[in-house]
Nucleic acid binder design. Structure first.
Length: 635
RNA sequence: GCUUCCGUGGCUCAGUUGGUAGAGCAACGCAUUCGUAAUGCGUGGGUCGGGGGUUCGAGUCCCCCCGGGAGCUCCA
């Protein structure tokens, strides 16, 4: 398949390679726009792009748009693909491009054109559409990821928008067209619509124009396309599989947690979920003892004044729950650091104590916007495996590396792949530029020395300091921040924290905030999806289920149960008056790692018949043999 | 918070152009006592998320609220 570049040249690319796929989906977005324009000429197109999986395009419709229209649009897209329209680069002067879009009433395209010249119209607060906005998380509306040096996103040829602001009428603009449709775009695109052999429109959602929440809300249509029908089928199957793994569904099925209407974003842990949570905590505590942490616990709510000192009141108030008692105002903690700070301050500190590592499983509350809540992944109450480490400036890099190493160890234990982001100083922040640079450099040099790859997330740091964020993926590929390491010079200053150095003088310690699971809730959500509810033996809330073939063998089953429990195993007997097939099916759907089947033969020879979740029937063995097997796997 | 869709017994869902609710699974009971992914029969369980309105009549139409899904914005 050929890819048409902005300069009009062709390049051979495969769908398998990222660039080819991007061009393919980008072109699909244009075909989507073309189909919509054919069916609804009044609709305005606000730009289409490649998504992580597939493509999307934003529109403004003159009527309320809903999913029922998708099928019709999809059919029109297939028609366009069938017409084998070739894509062309249309290079023209700005004035001509503007006239073209104006004639068609495409004022979003016009705005994109104007955005390209950037400066000029005084509305400088708004980031230029070309540049991507500083926050960088969401690409500019035209797409691109801000790191793209070789092309200006909108398709202006000018290398530098600033120089051309003066004589914009001579400026060349690049559009791509296929058939009767043209769009302001830098490409690249595939050379012909005929390559799109299979496609499906997946969903409709809202999206803000230019990603600005104060701006207009557009209708975004998502779709997926492939050069082969079989690939589409395959993709739809993986989508179904992902749905099957959804932690919200499995959480209910497996009796792990509960989300009630009475408490949006406030999860309940059911008995089995609590076992899971406690197992994680046991593991966590063991590692933290080894790493020289001391565990503390600080109150869920503290006087408002404390939050004023810490800066949370000023920067975070809208998300804090508050309450007033005896004429005193309290805020429920959205994070545990001020509490940790008070513990540090509770006695004079010496350099001999540093690094002082105070770990806390903090129950925190944040009033997240209703629309952002998502199962266990985004909640309003959660337990954070926090720690606050106080140290000298010299100890900073080594301590960051220790934490990063611990995070790596724990994520690896679960078989997670993760990626790291370095978030730098945001607009709304406190502290001097030198401190920010020092802190940011410490984080950067720590990960670089360890050879951990990372991406920079400009302006996404905490208000008090820069951070390294560790992201994990859920079952459909969305990534969630879990671990974090944050360097903070500000809180120690605000609280006047000190230690006595070797020189007998008082010094200010540096503070690191860090979390590994992040939120226990979120981590458990990801674990459920990662294992599709089939937890490894050591983590399974129920490890063994004992299935007597009939209740004649109930007494023997009781003996086995007692023996297993003595070994500390989590097990239970299926006492239903059902046939063995039914009991096996039930245990299997519950995702229980081992089944012990007991009937006449086993009772006779005092043995057990074992069935493993993944492997099926393992045959008869002695109880001791079975236990040995479990020990080897790791109870 | 915004756009849009959805909300029927514990769970998954059906419910035709408005005529006062139905299935499967689960639960419970009885029979069966069985060898590797669903034994049979029976019983109970819903003021259809909540409130208001239209109508002789609303699960079905309209409005408001609550909750949920997808995405956007946000995520110290």
């Amino acid at each position: 398949m050929k890819v048409l570049l902005q300069n009009g040249k062709m390049e051979e690319r495969d769908f398998e390679d990222a660039k080819g796929r991007e061009a393919f989906w980008h072109t699909s977005a244009h075909v989507l726009a073309q189909a919509v324009k054919r069916l609804y000429p009044g609709a305005k197109c606000a730009g289409g792009q490649t998504a992580e999986n597939g493509f999307y395009c934003d529109f403004e419709f003159a009527f309320p748009f809903s999913e029922e229209y998708l099928e019709k649009i999809q059919e029109e897209m297939k028609k366009i693909a069938g017409e084998s329209l070739s894509l062309q680069v249309w290079e023209t002067e700005r004035a001509e491009a503007e006239r073209y879009m104006k004639e068609r009433g495409e004022f979003y395209q016009l705005e994109l054109l104007r955005g390209c010249s950037g400066r000029g119209d005084g509305a400088d607060k708004e980031p230029g559409i070309c540049g991507g906005d500083g926050a960088g998380k969401e690409p500019g509306i035209c797409g691109g990821d801000g790191t793209d040096e070789e092309q200006s996103i909108c398709g202006t040829v000018c290398a530098d928008g600033q120089d051309t602001a003066g004589d914009s009428f001579r400026e060349k603009i690049i559009l791509y067209r296929q058939g009767e449709y043209a769009e302001v775009c830098a490409g690249p695109h595939i050379s012909n619509t005929c390559h799109i052999r299979a496609l499906k429109l997946l969903s409709v959602a809202g999206a803000y124009w230019r990603g600005d929440e104060r701006g207009r809300m557009l209708t975004r249509i998502y779709g997926i396309s492939f050069p082969k029908a079989s690939l589409l089928e395959e993709y739809l199957l993986t989508l179904e599989e992902a749905k099957r793994r959804d932690h919200r569904k499995l959480g209910r099925q497996l009796g792990l947690f509960l989300l009630a209407e009475e408490g949006p974003g406030l999860p309940f842990f059911l008995p089995k979920g609590m076992i899971l949570k406690n197992l994680l905590l046991d593991y966590w505590r063991g590692l933290h003892r080894r790493e020289g942490y001391q565990e503390i616990s600080t109150p869920v709510m503290l006087d408002r004044k404390l939050w004023e000192v810490s800066g949370h009141w000023e920067h975070y108030r809208d998300k804090m729950y508050t309450t007033a008692v005896d004429g005193r105002e309290y805020a429920i903690k959205p994070m545990s650091c001020p509490g940790g700070m008070l513990v540090y301050q509770s006695e004079p500190r010496s350099y001999r104590e540093l690094p002082l590592r105070l770990a806390e499983l903090g129950l925190i509350h944040r009033h997240e916007k209703s629309g952002t809540l998502h199962g266990l992944m985004r909640v309003r109450e959660c337990t954070q495996d926090d720690a606050h480490i106080f140290m000298t400036k010299e100890q900073m890099v080594e301590e960051i590396q220790k934490v990063a190493g611990l995070i790596h160890e724990i994520y690896t234990k679960f078989g997670f792949a993760y990626h790291v982001e370095l978030s730098t100083r945001p607009q709304d922040s406190i502290g001097s530029q030198e401190e920010w640079e020092l802190a940011t450099d410490a984080l950067r040099s720590a990960v670089e020395a360890m050879g951990i790859p990372y991406v920079v997330n400009e302006g996404d740091g905490a208000f008090y300091g820069p951070k390294l964020d560790f992201h994990l993926k859920d079952s459909i590929g969305r990534t969630w921040q879990c671990g974090t390491i944050q360097v903070d010079f500000q809180l120690p200053r605000r609280f006047g924290a000190e230690y006595t150095g070797t020189d007998g003088e008082r010094h200010r310690p540096v503070m690191i905030h860090r979390a590994i699971f992040g939120s226990l809730e979120r981590f458990i959500g990801i674990l459920i999806e990662h294992y599709a509810g089939r937890f490894p033996l050591w983590l399974a809330p129920m490890q063994v289920k004992i299935l007597p073939i009939s209740d004649k063998y109930m007494a023997y089953a009781g003996e086995i149960e007692r023996a297993l429990k003595e070994e500390g195993l989590r097990c239970e007997i299926d006492e239903k008056g059902e046939k063995i097939g039914y009991k096996i099916r039930t245990a299997q759907t519950e995702g229980i790692p081992y089944m012990v089947i007991l009937g006449e033969k086993e009772a006779q020879e005092r043995s057990v018949c074992i069935r493993k979740r993944e492997e099926g029937d393992l045959g008869r063995m002695t109880l001791e043999g079975f236990l040995e097997m479990l020990r080897e796997e790791g109870i």
